[in-house]
Amino acid sequence: MSNSVLEISKLRKSFDTELVLEDISIKVPEHTATVFIGASGSGKSTLLRCINLLEPIDDGVIKLDGEEITDVEINPDEVRRKIGMVFQAFNLFPHMSVLENIILAPMRVKGSSRDQAVDQAESLLKRFGLLDKAHQYPDRLSGGQQQRVAIIRSLALNPRLLLLDEITSSLDPVLVNEVLKTVRDLKAEGMTMVLATHEMGFAKQVADEVCFLKDGRILEWGTPDQILNKPQERQTQEFLKQVNEAGRL
């Protein structure tokens, strides 16, 4: 493993008196995908929000390309523009068209001209088969289309790292596939990613490393085959059994 895009060591996070993440240490090398699995409330979303500096942490270090982003002197806005994030509920801006959603950050954050930003947005929309939706408002799009627009929006700043927070959890099974295909395409192009997901089949396809999160700790980690097919820990086995029974494997 050469240079890690993301490196977390001994991260700890609590909300008031409730400890949500403890002793989290991972390395995400360039062009790889690390997938976090675990029950709801195990801390997956919080971890992603901490990486994007949306949540302050209690202890530990997060490094992006070797630079400590948890340094108090660092400007979080500058860090966030290097990290793309996609949310479970899409969080598109409802008062803006698809195109405006995508060009907002390049224009305001990177200082691109409108023409430049529109060109880039249109080529991204074309690549993901959404060019005909450019001037639609989010509420006219299906959930799958909205989520793909949200992915494109986060790609418009050419991020070093993409955080995907249960991006298929509010979609029906048919729409899940079009979103997952988009993520597989990104993986194939070499995007470095950290994902939280309940889709175990998808985790198998896309992950280089799978981490099982239990009560805020990484209980078990390894290749998708190791974790999803031959888990060693009893709690991992139980979790996967429950997921299997729910028909999501």
């Binding site: 966030r80 523009r81 969080n91 598109l92 801006f93 409802p94 008062h95 954050v109 929006r153 700043l157």
Partner: peptide, 28 residues
Amino acid sequence: PSQRAAARSLGLNYVQTMRHVILPQAFR
């Protein structure tokens, strides 16, 4: 708050988030 989170995660600062994301929706 998710609208704010989305805007901040795109690297927009507080003023930009207010001006382009929160206030237009709030006024509507």
